[in-house]
């Protein structure tokens, strides 16, 4: 039902609904009770705030919340967690190792994602994964600091760093 409302409404109303649902969920986590007083207050406050603040979400490129998108998002989060754990063991190994096996460098990576929010999520995922973090972004290029440079070519670096998240994110934001 939610999907149908989302598909029929205009962009502004869609963004409003988005913010309203998000704020209500955050309020429920903040109070972590289901008492009617808290719930009523949360719905009321979220309604007022999303009425006034939905302007700041215009143009972020939010994905449509269908069942398919949500399941792709869950897959993405699972793969992100796997990568985070790998990243930590990797960095901890490099720090503790007496010889410090690092070959740092700065490389350029390309992305095909269009939406602002998708770029933010891609940059954050790159920052959280093994030995790479985002220094800057301009258009479709990301400047990346790599702690163990294995290739200097743009295409190969894209293959090694960004592609594993990009394929999930592309499905979420399509």
């Amino acid at each position: 039902m939610v999907e149908r409302i989302f598909k029929k409404s205009t962009t502004r109303v869609r963004i409003f609904l988005y913010l309203f649902i998000l704020l209500t969920l955050v309020w429920m986590a903040l109070t972590s009770t289901l008492h009617w007083q808290e719930l009523t207050a949360g719905v009321l406050i979220s309604f007022i705030l999303s009425l006034f603040l939905s302007k700041s979400y215009v143009g972020l490129g939010l994905p449509t919340p269908t069942v398919k998108t949500l399941s792709f998002l869950l897959i993405y989060i699972a793969s992100l967690f796997k990568e985070i754990i790998k990243a930590n063991i990797d960095v901890a190994y490099r720090v503790v190792h007496p010889k410090m096996p690092i070959r740092p460098g700065i490389v350029v990576v390309k992305t095909e994602l269009k939406q602002d929010l998708a770029k933010l999520m891609l940059a954050n995922s790159i920052t959280l994964t093994p030995g790479t973090f985002t220094l800057d972004i301009a258009g479709d290029k990301l400047l990346i600091h790599w702690i163990n440079v294995s290739t200097q070519d743009e295409e190969k670096a894209t293959q090694a760093i960004a592609l594993k998240f990009e394929k999930h994110l592309k499905r979420v934001f399509s």
């Binding site: 070959r103 740092p104 460098g105 700065i106 490389v107 350029v108 301009a138 290029k141 400047l143 200097q152």
Partner: peptide, 16 residues
């Protein structure tokens, strides 16, 4: 950057 750095591609980047 540190002296032991391998590569610095930031010159390919527009604002640098």
């Amino acid at each position: 950057l540190w002296d032991g750095s391998v590569v610095d591609k930031s010159r390919d980047f527009p604002s640098y």
